[in-house]
Design a protein around this nucleic acid. Structure first.
Length: 434
DNA sequence: CGTCCACAGGAATGACGGGCGG
DNA sequence: CCGCCCGTCATTCCTGTGGACG
């Protein structure tokens, strides 16, 4: 049965009505088309990567390990701090969330006092926001900003003592926090138990970077990683199982071709076994198929999903870029367009200054632009590599990290810098090869 | 074999807006 | 309203450096 009968009735009634109105509204057509086509999805949510499934294939061992670590909580004892390593999309977050939700259920049965707090440090961004998130999980009120860090920490401590139970804080992408703000916060957190009379705190750290340890003070490291475990990337076969598992409940029966499933797994396996990416591919492919009313998801849908995801990523990144970063990026685009193999910091800076003048912005210093280039490298819009040209100095070779056509299209649509597409900087006149 | 280019990238510092507590 | 402390962005000054050239 595709659609429950009462919905079916309403759909046909709706269609009849719209025929009589003769499609006065464009959207009417879109919506009707959507309703008429049997949906590809049974439950789209299942393919979102923040969805925690009932069953995590190929992670039984890690789940058991984590379970053993947190079990003491049920008897009111503090559990060891854990450090979890693994690249993106290896199931770290899902496994932790899974284990903690089960623990929570058990704790309710036994009426043990446990509370949890999940924080993604990269989203939080600053030590302050990490602390304030922990506070609000305890029901302690803290303003968005304005307080001294120490004050927030004191409030957290008081909150922990009043709560008088066990508090487990999950710090996801903990490496991002340490890289930008150092390990002082972690140091304080690992020592907070000494200052507490009643409450007890445990920390679960999740890191995407395997070399995370190098950034930590040995004292912090030893107390933070009382236990540790590594999540290995999935291989293609494992990814296939995971996808199959989710696809069964996410799609309607027979919607997914076998080869499309394998292709999806293979593509994600090539990209360091990232399950998150595999799920995205599958979801977007499903959406593409649905939109065109296809009866089955094919290899071609997966391929198109791949380019679609890439495109969206760039568009999203570019949209939120500050003006100066846009100009730097556009400078690189211009250099690459004129087929200059060696896009170098100095050249980019010159073009950038020219572009600034052209649009009436005061240029930033080269030091700052150098920083912007690094930021663009991190987002993946640029690829950079430090090279030495001997007698002619040491610099950075810079290439575009994405297809030129995408950059060009984005800039043409940019209301502020759109006209730059037609502009040729003086710097390039005469230098041009092809 | 030393020099010296053209930067990389760290550290210190400041300007600025937001948001507190008093 | 003030003084204080944040986070963010930017500048200034600085030391470090791989390797072709002389």
């Amino acid at each position: 049965m595709f659609i429950p009968s009462d919905i079916e009735r309403r759909v046909s009634a709706c269609l009849e009505r719209s025929e009589s109105v003769k499609e006065t509204n464009v959207l009417e057509g879109v919506f009707n088309h959507f309703l008429q086509n049997a949906s590809v999805f049974r439950d789209r949510e299942i393919l979102r990567h923040d969805y925690v499934p009932e069953n995590l294939p190929h992670r039984e061992e890690q789940i058991r390990f984590l379970g053993e670590i947190v079990a003491p909580v049920l008897k009111g004892e503090r559990c060891s701090n854990v450090l979890i390593y693994g690249k993106t999309g290896t199931g770290k977050t899902a496994a932790v969330k899974y284990v903690l939700s089960k623990l929570n259920q058990k704790a309710q049965e036994f009426a043990s006092s446990v509370s949890f707090c999940y924080i993604n440090c990269r989203w939080a961004g600053t030590e302050y926001r990490v602390l304030s998130t922990m506070c609000s999980a305890l029901g302690v009120k803290v303003p968005f900003t304005g307080l001294a860090l120490g004050e927030v920490f004191d409030r957290l401590q008081k909150g922990l003592d009043t709560q008088n139970g066990i508090f487990i804080a999950v710090l996801d992408e903990i490496d991002a926090l340490v890289k930008t703000h150092g390990d002082t916060l972690l140091y304080e957190l690992t020592r907070v138990n000494e200052a507490l009379q009643f409450g007890k705190t445990s920390i679960v750290g999740i890191s995407n970077d395997l070399r995370f340890k190098d950034f930590l003070d040995p004292r912090v490291l030893s107390s933070l990683s009382e236990e540790e475990t590594v999540f290995k990337p999935y291989d293609a076969a494992e990814l296939r199982n995971i996808l199959l598992d989710r696809a069964k409940s996410a799609f309607r029966g027979g919607m997914l071709s076998d080869s499309a499933l394998s292709l999806c797994a293979a593509l994600a396996a090539a990209e360091h076994g990232d399950a998150r990416r595999a799920l995205d591919l599958l979801r977007v492919a499903g959406e593409l198929a649905e939109r065109e009313g296809a009866r089955i998801i094919t290899d071609e849908h997966i391929r198109r999903a791949e380019t679609r995801i890439e495109h969206d990523r760039v568009v999203e990144a570019l949209k939120n870029l500050p003006a100066h970063s846009k100009l730097v990026l556009f400078g690189v685009y211009l250099l690459v367009k004129v087929n200059i193999a060696r896009a170098i910091t100095g050249e980019i800076y010159e073009i950038y200054c020219e572009l600034c003048e052209h649009v009436g912005l005061t240029p930033l210093t080269q030091r700052r632009v150098s920083g912007l280039i690094n930021e663009l490298d991190v987002i993946g819009l640029l690829n950079t590599q430090v090279v030495s040209m001997g007698r002619y100095g040491r610099t950075k070779k810079i290439r575009l990290g994405v297809a030129r056509s995408i950059i060009r299209r984005m800039f043409m649509n940019d209301e502020r810098f759109g006209r730059l597409v037609k502009y040729t900087p003086k710097f390039l006149v005469g230098v041009s090869g092809a």
